[in-house]
Design a protein around this nucleic acid. Structure first.
Lengths: 325, 325
DNA sequence: GTCTCTTTTCCGCCTAGTGCAAAAATGGAC
DNA sequence: GTCCATTTTTGCACTAGGCGGAAAAGAGAC
């Protein structure tokens, strides 16, 4: 028997002065209400409501207990309401990790709008060019270019696909000449972003023609800004998402190369741990980011994004460490 | 499902860091504990404890809810404990009514010893020479001489039987002569206590002889002290419980009459409303009074009392008015 | 990959809780 | 005193739901 319901029957009976009315209010039969109240009195070994078929009144014990259990029922309702509400109204701290470039160019600029929508939610951006372990780093959300996670409990959701470009400084081109064909790249100094899929094999296509070039990196890094700085210094030809170097190109400090050829797109994903009930903050952030990218995307940087979860493991899958309370 | 048990499972799991340990502590199976916790999370629509088979930790919502429900569980245990304790440790106010004489001679003198035993219980003695309605007067206990109650919900329990005496002032006897035989009483001025059974018919016995005398009261009253005062003033012959006039007789102010003859005993009862669970204060007071009378009775005043409830109606019988909270 | 241990879920059983209706009680009207 | 309407309590039959055991699933240690 639900002991809370016993307290509710007692409280409501005292309030309304009638077991029958309490039963009606609590949507149960008179018999059930009578049994709940009797069970409570038996458990406490005391008569709480002295009553007959015509009248009833609280005993002294009943008076005292009523005050206490009314308070308790209110507090419980408030506690349960508060905790249910927080599932709908995200608050606390959200920890996001992404590349430095993505953080600078996309995450930071969009935060004011996000915070305006969710004032109780703090966002901490961890710019990292390695993939930290979710658990160890306390990461809620990661923006990543890789499409698969070794951890089966991580959900990967596509944000979109980005164009990439080949570009070099004018000084480099003056010194080493300009590549006219994809095959020429094999003889050039290449600056590679090693977090891309198969970064040392480059596939370019023009119309129906396609060429795959194996390149030997002069420098490879997991940091887009490092690669950008090296290219600006004339150390070689970079291949990077357009969003990172668009400003340099417009300023004439980097010259785009083989612009008639198309490079493979870079898929950008958001990843988070799958949970029985996804915390609201992760849900709202993901939705906001995807929508923000979609609304502010330029065709030259982003291809049309499709909302798609590429991998959803079973609900019981977890890979997490017990935290000290 | 017992919602309080759900809270207990959650609280204990958080405390011990393991559903299995919580189950063991709460003496239930692992399966049951798992279901209770899941049911609570479903009811609140939020994950309280993130967990897998190897580790678990509180979510933010879980942290907040744990603080609140730990408090609630403690408060409820305290409330239930307090109300159960009061059933064992009577407190509050007990209202007792009796005749003025009984109050002065028996109740008041025994109160110090009673209060020493039950310091939290206040006793209010309502000296009355009429029988007030239990409900209207808020009476808990009544000391009465009548043996039956019109209200079937009232329990009557015998305290004992008291000797009665005939006595008159010397001045009256000098003026009117001394009755030598019960029949002589018919020619005397009689002072009658009208709360006795059949107060106008007097049956006296000596050995195997018995005489019944019909007497016409010069004065009758429901107050023993009024009758006593009239006798002391020489207005007539009284018949009263010995305990009321013993002091006057010893002082020579009243002369006992027809002392070889025995008068009918006066039955003294305690009465209270029958209840499913008799409030502790009524129970302890009744027991104390009966035991006190037994221990301090003098053969000359009390005959041996027998513990006996003369009428116990069915438990559902009540005659009470709903009180405003 | 195997082992161990915990959590979750399935299954069959059983009991506790249900509503209905009758019994009992109560108080007001007459 | 009797009748009536209404409430509380209790008996009864039924079933929904909660149980424990065991299997399934998962996770970390080795």
């Amino acid at each position: 028997m639900d002991r809370l319901l016993q307290l509710e029957v007692f409280s409501k009976t005292a309030e309304l002065g009638s077991l029958s009315k309490a039963a009606e209010t609590l949507r149960m039969s008179n018999a059930a209400a009578s049994r709940h109240l009797s069970a409570l009195e038996e458990r406490l070994a005391v008569r709480l409501i002295e009553r007959n078929t015509r009248r009833q009144w609280l005993t002294e014990a009943g008076h005292e207990f009523l005050q206490r259990c009314s308070t308790l029922l209110n507090e419980l309702a408030e506690a349960e309401g508060a905790v249910s509400d927080r599932a709908l109204s995200p608050n606390g701290m959200l920890r996001v990790t992404s590349s430095l470039s993505f953080a600078m160019i996309y995450l930071a600029p969009m935060l004011p709008a996000f915070r305006a929508l969710y004032p109780k939610l703090s966002v901490q951006i961890i710019a990292a060019n390695r993939y930290p372990d979710f658990i160890e780093a306390g990461i809620d959300v990661a923006i990543r270019t890789r499409e698969q996670e070794p951890d089966s409990s991580i959900v990967v959701r596509r944000i979109g696909q980005m164009r990439r470009v080949l570009a070099a400084a004018p000084a480099y081109l003056a010194r080493r000449g300009r590549p006219e064909h994809p095959a020429d790249l094999a003889r050039h100094d290449m600056l590679i972003y090693n977090h891309a899929n198969d970064p040392y094999s480059l596939r370019l296509s023009k119309g129906s023609a396609a060429e795959t070039v194996r390149i030997a990196p002069t420098l490879d890094s997991n940091d887009g800004q490092v690669i950008r700085a090296a290219a600006l210094a004339g150390l070689g030809i970079l291949i990077q998402p357009l969003y990172i170097v668009q400003g340099d190109i417009l300023a004439g400090q980097l010259m785009p190369l083989l612009v008639d050829w198309e490079l493979p797109l870079l898929t950008m994903n958001i990843a988070y741990q799958n949970r029985v009930r996804l915390p609201a903050k992760i849900r709202v952030f993901s939705d906001f980011l995807v929508n923000h990218i979609r609304e502010h995307s330029h065709a030259r940087i982003w291809m049309d994004a499709t909302r798609q979860t590429t991998h959803t493991p079973s609900n019981s899958g977890r890979s997490i460490r017990k935290q000290n309370p």
